[in-house]
Design a protein around this nucleic acid. Structure first.
Length: 465
RNA sequence: GGUGCCAUAGCCAAGUGGUAAGGCCAAGGUCUGCAAAACCUUUAUCCCCCGGUUCGAAUCCGGGUGGCACCUCCA
């Protein structure tokens, strides 16, 4: 597999630290609210990366943290008059609800910052011992100038970075670029005991501490949104490598942003959507399809029309799956004929193209194209009496591909006895050429939530979207 | 100011040296009692513009134009 590494700015062959195993750390949400459409992109992308790596045989340890202590958490908790812990518990629960709707598997581990205070403190102490951090008035800062490689990820030197830096009033830093590792307690804030007094961890240090806790001092893949490249990930490198003296991460992956109607999503512009908002209007699986229809590094625009397009494409995919299941009922146990052999060849070809696309820096758009090439062949099959062997091969290939993408997650529901009765009555009505009654029943079935189609092999139902 | 990204049909989007994938939408046709779904056909002589390299470029190089991001704990 080849992955684009943000650090080298080029695609590199993926070679894991430990053969057969992959460690991935993805920056998770700050749990002060429902997560938004922009958060959803990396969650879905790294879920697909993980599914893909597992599908080709890797044992994957996937870590995604919850930031459950920071300024936003404290402010929100104060607004609502609840504790930071209660706020975190609530939105972590909501995270899993939304993630499930989007087809995102739970990570191997979902560490919370507040449950790793000892590891964080130990890491800061090491940095102080190494001369890379200093304490002033209960705050601890990272001494950026003491880490020669600072800027290695974002590709900028200290002088250039400094020209854009600004200092907040009240901070006693040696240098404007120095960043907080530990913040002394302010009135009314949650705090933990430390060698520097009561306080709480800075944002950057939690990811260094938790990633190394679960994945080791050097691990394979670290990802997040492009905006995290600087300063968050740059700081993680400074912290981790400054403490261990070893390379921290082999491959840095960063996803592009989602714009709303060609504008950056922001609360001030009023174009800020949480997944929970979108779920009221759209099928979450269509949102996933939308996310995978473009390459993960490109910026994408999010709009109502684009989700509708994704929903239509997804419907075609479901149609193909249902068609295979439908054909299976009349499948024949015999050798495949020429057309059926072509279907089987297409199944192999699609799989190959799919794998090649995924192996090329997770090119989901190209992979989906390969999937649809098989879909087209499936629809060309006769309505009944197809070779079972050929059907099974096509179905297996299709489900393997959709499984990697995390699509086609909905099961086909059983039909209720009422709908079944209406279908039976309609079958008789059609036999009697009673078209009026037949159409009435079709409308009634539609109202009951199903769309009816007449095929050579009888009536076929599918659930309305 | 520093650093980087992007520009492909009505819409979305792959393709990074060998002659334009796939999806959505649209039109015509086939099938159907009528539908629906599906299938067939049509839909970019051309990939923002101008130069250059090359037998050959959407793909490489230079210069424009337009859009965007990071440098502000926003994925």
């Amino acid at each position: 597999m080849r992955l684009y590494n943000s650090q080298s700015r080029s695609k590199e062959e993926f070679i894991p630290v430990h053969p057969g195993k992959v460690g991935i750390y993805a920056c998770g949400p700050t749990v002060y609210n429902y997560f938004h459409i922009g958060n959803a992109r990396p969650f879905i992308i790294f879920d697909v990366l993980r599914r893909y790596l597992e599908s080709v045989g890797y044992e994957v340890t996937f870590v995604q943290n919850f930031t459950d202590i920071d300024d936003k958490m404290i402010n929100r908790a104060n607004e609502e008059g609840i504790t930071v812990k209660a706020l975190a518990d609530r939105y972590i629960k909501e995270y899993f609800t939304d993630a499930k709707a989007l087809g995102i598997h739970p990570a191997t581990v979902h560490p919370r910052a507040t449950e790793h205070i000892p590891q964080i403190i130990a890491l800061i102490e090491t940095l102080i011992d190494n001369g890379l951090a200093y304490e002033t008035n209960g705050d601890v800062y990272y001494r950026v100038h003491a880490f020669p490689r600072y800027g290695c990820l974002c590709g900028q030197n200290l002088e250039d970075l400094e020209s854009g830096a600004r200092v907040s009033i009240g901070e006693q830093k040696e240098d404007p670029l120095d960043f907080a590792l530990w913040k002394a307690q302010k009135k009314g804030e949650p705090a933990w005991e430390s060698p520097w007094g009561m306080g709480r961890p800075g944002w950057h240090i939690e990811c260094s501490a938790m990633s190394m806790e679960y994945l080791g001092e050097t691990f394979d893949i670290h990802g997040g949104g492009k905006d995290l490249l600087f300063p968050h990930h740059e700081n993680e490198i400074a912290q981790s490598e400054g403490a261990t003296g070893k390379p921290y991460v082999r491959y840095w992956m960063h996803n592009g942003f989602i714009n709303i109607d060609n504008e950056k999503m922001s609360k001030s512009k009023g174009n800020f959507f949480t997944i929970r908002d979108i779920a009221k209007e759209y099928d979450m699986e269509a949102v996933r399809m939308f996310m995978l229809s473009a390459h993960y590094r490109s910026p994408v625009n999010f709009s109502r029309e684009l989700v509708a397009q994704a929903a239509s494409a997804l419907e075609r995919l479901y149609g193909a799956r249902d068609q295979l299941a439908f054909l299976m009922k009349t499948a024949e146990d015999r050798e495949p004929d020429a057309d059926e052999q072509q279907l089987m060849a297409q199944a192999d070809q699609s799989r190959q193209k799919f794998d090649a696309a995924m192996a090329d820096d997770l090119n989901t758009a190209d992979a989906i194209a390969a999937l649809f090439e098989l879909v087209r062949e499936v629809f060309k099959l006769p309505q009944a009496g197809v070779s079972r062997q050929a059907l099974q091969k096509a179905e297996q290939a299709m489900l393997q591909m959709t499984g990697v993408l995390g699509l086609l997650l909905k099961q086909t529901d059983g039909i209720s006895p009422e709908v079944k009765a209406m279908m039976d009555e309609r079958a008789q009505a059609r036999k009697d050429k009673n078209w009026k009654r037949s159409d009435e029943l079709r409308d009634a079935i539609h109202a009951a939530g199903y769309t009816l189609e007449d095929t050579a092999a009888g009536q076929k139902v599918r659930k309305n979207v």
